[in-house]
Every structure is written in structure tokens, then in C-alpha cells.
Design a protein around this nucleic acid. Structure first.
Lengths: 193, 193, 193, 193
DNA sequence: AATGAATGAGGGTTCATTCAT
DNA sequence: TATGAATGAACCCTCATTCAT
């Protein structure tokens, strides 16, 4: 249960970046949140960017294991899709302030400005898309790969856009409606098949 | 055709905020971009936040007039919907760097942190949603208002999410696929009605 | 008699750099010595290096006007040479701590590390050498230019080296002996001519 | 042939200080260059200053043995003088970047600031001067000790000043001319004697 | 309406050093 | 003998803002 200093820094910074964004999170913020001195921080990390990149790397690792290797890798493809939508939804369900999607926030804040971050984020999103395509292909073997890809992209866009709407309204409604439609789509198509 | 100093400041700041975000845009950046001294700037605006709020206000005014009062107010509701999707798509089509959606970026960056900005953005998004609901209702009179609302939210989510994907990939593909699906949906539903 | 803030900064920094060297002179030192706040400092100068370069530029300008345009430009070339040696000597004569030569110190500290400084210093030293060559040529018209150049370099080296010895001993003796020899040489040669 | 950790630290630091100066050489630089951890470093040395003083002590020891006990202690005094000038010259001859004189650099950087360093440097320079005086006295027995001392100082000044000029020009020419003159002087005087 | 001097808190980073194991 | 975690002052620089003219 004991955490090393390095882990504490990363954990706290993950939370700070999620809530405030990368730019708005200062080294002082990180020091205060993790109870660590300046020198110590730079003992473990070379720069603020290095912390940021490590945070993102770990975050994506977490998503990979939970989402790609876990949820999307289960046997039944339709259940996998439903589980993914639910997983995404449930994360936000219990919040009091809606900070948005940890990944989406980083994409919007950094993709056009910080190539190192963009690279990591893009790689993950590509993997996510491909995983989704595979699951969709498994769920609907009669469809073309192109059709699956289109649906995968649309599915991801809906989720990401849904959480953007949640953020501006500070209200879960939009995501609820998006989820409803997504599940319906998945079911509807299933009915037809 | 001459621009006043105040207008010049706002125009340049709009561009800077679009590309870099609000936090990353410093007073110095604004001064440099608009060729204005410190005194001037603080003569016209009380603070950086005041500039930002004015920029957002003008931006939303522009969207209101172009999108809500223009595109979405045309007689034929289905044409209105298609036009809206195209308008959104075409804005991004000609870019070399994909900075995302001016509104979406602000929502993600500021909604959870800056109530004044959130308020403006939320008000506009609400109006946009309502306008969409009305147009959808007009297009599909047989449907319930709830169904229209669900579709409106999903439409907006798809667009916002699509542009998020574009930003992370720095590639228009995702939005192209989203647009394809949206136009298809609008047609498909039309066929059924 | 009133000095502008900028002038005050430069004057104090010149003194600090002379005594401590460029690296050892911190922005805080400069702030304290010139009674100026951080923002103010960076209002007038873009960076510590910019201050340093300006200090060096002004210093070299001063040397140019006093030494090259003044002392070395007088009609009688032998008097000019003697006056130069005396001018150099007298500067150090009245000091209690021997900080060395303002130029020599900078050369030793920065020539191998900081190209911008080296460039300025080298340009001045080249001018100084050439001025000396001309004066020597005027004093001893029968000599070859090469011989004059050799003597010029040796004269400069003696002065610079002399003040290095003064610095290590914290004692003017070495420079006194160097001066003695230099004046003797000039006289001696004069006798021969 | 294996070097102890302590020796490795000293060797690398000597090089770093020679190239960058004492102030500009950080503990991190030393650690990196010698491949030693923090604990190691402070196990062998009490402080950065202690390392610096040891470096200087060793350096001066080296000069003492090579120059004072070696070159200047050979039987023939005139050969000794010529050998000294050549030794000094040849060290610099093969460099691509001219970092100046290891001793001269330290004198200029530290004499007026760091009493401990100044003490070491001054002691050595005094010994060097005295050794030179003795050799000159041996070479020219007819001269007064005062005259020898004057020449000794001037010889040292020429060398030190010559290398300062080399440093600012990043070009060996100046030292070549200084050497030429010095050897000529030694010969000239020899001729006269 | 306009200029730019002045302020001082805070930005990210490096420093030499000490401590615990 | 060796490791590297921890400390905190100081480094250069940028920030948004205010003031005097």
C-alpha cells in the first residue's frame, strides 16, 4: 500500500492534469499536492514535460489494460461493445464536477501544440479504433471492413463529443442520450442481422 | 474598411486563442500580434479575462448569426441540417493544421474552471441544441420532441467528437466518416418517414 | 546628472561584471545594485545576455573613444604609445583590490564559451592591434609592417599579462615592471632609430 | 593502470574547469563526466570548493614537477629558458579550441574572489618567478638581480598575455609572435653578453 | 486616446549540500 | 565504500496588472 515518492508525484499530477489541464498545472501545484520539494521533483523527472509525458504514458497504459486488453478483448463482441459504452459512461456518472475525458482533454489541449503528447495520444487512439473495428467485424461478420471502420469512428466520436457536451452543461444528460442511442444502434443492428 | 484598435485586438486574440488556447495566450502575445502597447490594451479592456470574454461573446455572436439565424433558419429543414453539417465540415477542410473547433476547444479548456466562460458557452450550446430540435421537429413532424432532442444531442456530439479525432490524428478522415454517417442518417430517416 | 533607469542598470552591471565576472553576476545582484525590480529589468533588456552584451558594447565604445580615438590618435606617435601605457597603468594604480583588466577578464571568461561576446571582444582587440601597428609604423617608419605588428602584439600581450600577474599577487609590482620595460623599449628603440 | 574513483573525479574535473571555468562547472557536470553518484562525490570531497582546491593543487604540482623541477632545473640556463617558452607554446599548438592557460584562467576567474584559490596560485606564480630569476641570473651572471627579476616578470607577462590574445582571436598567431620575440630577446641578450 | 515605466508574484529549472540506508 | 532520496535557496525569465504622464 505504501507508495514511492515517484508514484505519489505521478498520481497527484494525473489528477491535477485531469482537473486543470496540463498548462494550468504548475510545478508548485504538483509539489503541494504530492508533498514534495522542488529538488526532489527534479530528482525524479527531468522537466515538467517529462512528468506530463509519463502521466500520459501511464494513463494510456491503464486504458490499454482496462479497455483494450480487458473490456474489448472479451469473447462476446456485442457484450464487449456494450461494456465499453457502459465503462465510459459509468466513469462520469459518479462525478460532481464534470471534468471531461482524461484523454479527450489532453487531445484538445495539446495535439496541435505538443508533438510528443500528440504522438502518444494518436497512437492510443489509433489502437482503440483498430480494436473497435475488430470487435465490430466480429459482431457483424457480414459487413465490410470499411463499414466497420466507419462505425468505429462514429462510435468514438459520439463518446468524445458526448463528454464535451457534458462538460459545457456540467450535467450528465447529453452523455445519457448518447449512450442510449449507441446501445440502441448496437441492438438495432443486432436485430437486423 | 479601417479597423479600430479595439477591433484589431479582438481579431488577433480570437485567432491566438483558437490556435493556442486561452491560457497559453499571453498579454504579450496579444500585444505583439495586434501591434498595440500595454497602455492601449488596458485602456480598452479591464483584464485578460475581459478580452477573453469579449472574444468568446463575439465568436458566439458570429455563430449565432451564421449558424442559428442563417443556416438553421432556412425554410427547408432537411436542407438546413445538411447545410449545417457541411458548414462545419468545410471550415476544417481547408486547414493545414487542425486546431479543432473554436467552441469545443474553449469548452474543454475552460468549462470546469472558469464560470464566466462556461456560462457563455453553455448558453450558446443550449440555443444550438434547441434550434436543432426545432429543425428536426420540422423535418420529422411525426416524432416526439424527446426523440428529436436525442437526435439533436447525438448530432452535436458526433460533430464535436469528430473534430476531436481530427485533432489527435491531424487528419480530416475521421470527420469525413462522421459526416458521411450523419448525412446518411438524415437521408435514411427521411426514407423511413 | 539624472540617470535613466536603463543607464543605471548598465552602469551598475558594468561594475559588477568587472568585479565578479559575468557568470557570477546574477540578475538579483543587478536588481539590488541598481534598485530595480525584476519586471523593470526585463522591460529594458531581453535577457541577462542582452545586458551583458550591452555592457560590453558600451565598455568597448568607451575604450574606442578614449584609447583609439583619443590617446592613440594624437599627433606624436611616440607620445601616443607612452600615453597608452600610462593610461593602462594609471587605471590600476589607484585600486585597492586588483580586479584585472575589464577586457582581459571578459576575454578569459567568455571567449571560448560565448560566441557573441567573443565576437565583440575580438573585433575590438583587432582594432586595437591595428591602431597600434599604425602608430608604431608612424613612430618607426623605417621598419616593416610585419615588425610593427610583432611589436604591437607583444606590447598588448605584455599589458594583458602584466595585469594578470597583478591580479594573482594582488600587488601592482608586476605591472610596474612591465611598464618600465615597455617604456624603456620604446625609448631604446627610439634611441636606435 | 586502473584509476581510483577519487582520481577519476579529479581528472575529469580538471578538464571541465579548464574548459568551462570553475564557476561554470557544476557538481552535476562532474558527476556526469566521471560517472559517479552524489554520495560518492561527497564521500571523497567535502565540497565543490574542496574538489576545486584539490584540482588546483594537483595541477600546480604537475607544473612544479614538469616546469620548475624539470625544464627550468636543467643545467644549461639558456636552454632552460628556450625550453620553457617552447613547452608553453607547444601545449597550445595542437588545440582546436583555445581555452587559454589553465593557470591564467584560474587567476583571472578567482584571484579577486576566492582567497583559498588565490593563495595557491600566488604561491606557485611566486615560485615560478623566483625560479625564472635564478635561471636568468645563471644565464646572465653579470646582471643585477633586479634586472633579472624585471626580465622574469616580463617573460611571464608576455606568455600569459600572449595566450589571452590567442583566446580572444581563437587563433595561435599572437602566441607565435610573442614566442618569436621572446626567443629573439633571449638570443639578442645572449649575443650582447 | 495613447505611451511605456514600474511592480511583484510566480513560472520552470539548477544549484550545492545533507541525510538515511 | 557506496547509493540516491531529500532539501531549499537561488537561478533566469514571464506573467497580468497598475501607474504616471
Amino acid at each position: 500500500m505504501k507508495m514511492t515518492t515517484r508514484e505519489r508525484i505521478l498520481k497527484q499530477t494525473t489528477e491535477l492534469i485531469y482537473r486543470q489541464g496540463y498548462l494550468a498545472t504548475s510545478i508548485s501545484d504538483i509539489m503541494a499536492a504530492s508533498g514534495v520539494g522542488k529538488g526532489q521533483l527534479y530528482h525524479y523527472f527531468a522537466s515538467k514535460q517529462a512528468i506530463g509525458l509519463e502521466v500520459v504514458t501511464q494513463l494510456l497504459g491503464e486504458w490499454r489494460s482496462q479497455l483494450l486488453d480487458g473490456i474489448l478483448s472479451q469473447e462476446n463482441p456485442r457484450q464487449a461493445l456494450v461494456a465499453m459504452v457502459d465503462w465510459f459512461f459509468e466513469f462520469h456518472q459518479n462525478q460532481t464536477v464534470f471534468y471531461g475525458c482524461s484523454l479527450g482533454n489532453l487531445i484538445v489541449e495539446l495535439s496541435a501544440q505538443e508533438p510528443h503528447f500528440q504522438e502518444l495520444l494518436k497512437a492510443f487512439m489509433t489502437d482503440w479504433e483498430e480494436a473497435l473495428v475488430s470487435v465490430l467485424q466480429a459482431a457483424y461478420p457480414e459487413r465490410s471492413r470499411g463499414a466497420c471502420r466507419e462505425q468505429a469512428i462514429n462510435l468514438l466520436a459520439s463518446l468524445q463529443g458526448g463528454i464535451v457536451l457534458v462538460k459545457v452543461h456540467q450535467d450528465l444528460d447529453s452523455l445519457t442520450l448518447v449512450r442510449q442511442r449507441l446501445l440502441q444502434d448496437l441492438g438495432l443492428v443486432a436485430d437486423r442481422s
